[in-house]
């Protein structure tokens, strides 16, 4: 048995005439890992995930899921994976309990309805009809339906978009639990804190390709450094000067000011202030934060993740 839960090579998906949604994407997700796909709108995350789920035929490339392939072992694979689509409507007029029971009936083995309903904290809404649930409750129900077959591999496409902070944290706990049980999770998200908190490894996808891959810390360290210093000041600062400051690794324009990525804050800040003072430039804003995946994305692509 392969120790990879997901393996794909050279994945391509074209929509004629001129859209290339996925453009030669390689991915390896290990068993027991929580893997995150990050990227801006239209990067090709959903397309990739749906190909991996066997719901979309790729234009080219190879896919292996849990050591099996969709063209040969679809029936078997379906029972071993669980999914949430980025966007679905479940049957409007059925209750939470009825919907979970319906999905449970499709799987040869799995968890009880009450258990999964409890996992996503919808116990109180068990008898409520789907069309009377709030957006976040609907989303949690979708996750419950993904869990009900006790999947070895779970695909979650933006599972927490639109959830309140408490529900998000609850869902994180669910994912943590699954990981503890040795199951594999592939999720897409726009929330960098979520990816850093949940994922063992992440891939940053842009224009249908993986542009960076690694653990969140690795990526941050490798691509941006430890800290980001942003400041605004009237013109009169030269980029070359900033680059020469001790501890500064990279410099780029950020809005009206500058963003410096820095590995030793205690050296960089005093040097920056001294430099500005020597030039007679007054600071109008200064902030620092620990570098995040957002910074990784911005420095790789020059764009922000969510515009």
């Amino acid at each position: 048995m392969s120790d990879l839960a997901i393996r794909c090579r050279g994945l391509v998906k074209r929509y004629p005439p001129d859209v290339t949604a996925v453009d030669g994407l390689d991915l390896e997700v290990r068993r027991g890992e929580c893997f995150g796909l990050l990227g801006p709108n239209g990067a090709g995350k959903t397309t990739t995930v749906e190909i991996l789920e066997g719901l979309l035929a790729p234009t080219g490339g190879e896919v292996e899921i849990l050591g099996a392939r969709w063209d040969r072992d679809a029936a078997d694979l379906r029972a071993r994976i669980g999914i949430t689509l980025q966007e679905t409507h479940l049957p409007e007029r059925l209750t939470v309990e009825e919907i979970v029971r319906l999905f449970r009936s499709f799987y040869p083995r799995g968890r009880g309805e009450d258990e999964v309903i409890g996992l996503v904290s919808l116990g109180e809404k068990r008898r409520a009809r789907y069309d009377r649930l709030s957006g976040g409750q609907k989303q949690r129900l979708a996750v419950a339906c993904a869990l009900v077959g006790e999947p070895e591999l779970l695909f979650l496409d933006e599972p927490t978009t639109g959830l309140d902070p408490q529900s998000r944290r609850q869902l994180w706990d669910v994912v943590d639990d699954l990981r503890r049980q040795g199951r594999t999770v592939l999720l897409t998200t726009h929330y960098m804190d979520e990816a850093e908190r949940l994922c063992d490894r992440v891939a940053i996808v842009d224009r249908g390709r993986v542009i960076a891959l690694g653990t969140p810390r690795e990526l941050i360290h490798r691509v941006v450094g430890q800290e980001v210093v942003e400041f605004e000041a009237p013109d009169g600062v030269l980029e070359a000067e900033l680059r020469a400051l001790p501890g500064v690794e990279a410099v780029r324009r950020a809005g009206a000011g500058w963003a410096l990525t820095v590995d030793r804050l205690h050296l960089a800040i005093p040097a920056l202030l001294a430099r500005l003072e020597a030039r007679g430039v007054a600071l109008s804003a200064l902030s620092t934060h620990r570098a995040t995946l957002e910074d990784v994305f911005v420095s790789l692509t020059g764009r922000r993740l969510r515009d």
Binding site: E53, G54, L55, A75, R78, A79, I81, I83, L85, E87, T88, H89, L90, P91, F103, F106, Y107, P108, C145, G149
Partner: peptide, 13 residues
């Protein structure tokens, strides 16, 4: 249209 069919087809149903 509501992708419910897609969701169902993704199960072993």
């Amino acid at each position: 249209q509501k992708k419910l069919l897609k969701r169902m087809v993704a199960t072993p149903m």
